[in-house]
Amino acid sequence: MLLEVEHINVYYGAIHAIKDVSFSVNEGEIVTLIGANGAGKSTTLDTIAGLLRSKTGDIRFNGQSVAHMPAHKVVAEGLALVPEGRRVFAQMTVEENLEMGAFTQAASTVEPNLKRVYEQFPRLEERKNQTAGTLSGGEQQMLAMGRALMSQPKLLMLDEPSMGLAPILVEQIFDIIRQLHEAGTTILLVEQNAQMALSVADRAYVLETGRVTLSGTGSELARSDEVRKAYLGG
């Protein structure tokens, strides 16, 4: 198993946001966490990335515990998070943003990885000298994903990559997720767009108010009555 999350409990002050959540991701899989707004999906990813701390349990990546590692060290282990809302560095150029993604990597990897990212996202190469703040929402999402790929992650975590995007761009982003998966990247995907997420996922977990309430393969959950009623509109 590439990632094992075991019995984590996360609090925001007095609010118990994540209640005894456990799940795992195998190498080469796309696993998705779905659930309503406020179910704790982003909190879970932020905790794995080291931005938040769990009071209990453990998070193991590649057999090693990352539960107490500061966020800036987690990246170097091969775990990259594309945060909710993209959070590109708006006043820096597209290429500088990508260079920041490679911060933990040896200088010699930057050129070949830049080339790979530009092949994957030709639009970014066209705009490499523009500041990231001038990009459209879809382009910013591509930049945020490209930036994370610059660290050559073993596991790519995507937090709401389709948020705020037009339907045609949502399709594009999910095409890219499929391509990355085919190229061998392991992906942990958090989405409110449950239909799209379940269509690409090998396995899925449903989060409800901080707890895992259901799990199964993507197609199992897409057929399940409970999921259809709650998240797929009947």
């Binding site: 500061p70 590109v88 560095f89 260079e99 911060f103 660290s151």
Partner: peptide
């Protein structure tokens, strides 16, 4: 320079900078 750019990244968004592996 890499450190200089990291400084600009931190001044824009410390959380995102940490996700890049920058020690804020």
């Amino acid at each position: 320079t890499k450190m200089g750019k990291a400084m600009r990244a931190c001044s824009e968004d410390k959380g995102a900078a940490q996700l890049m592996g920058i020690n804020v």
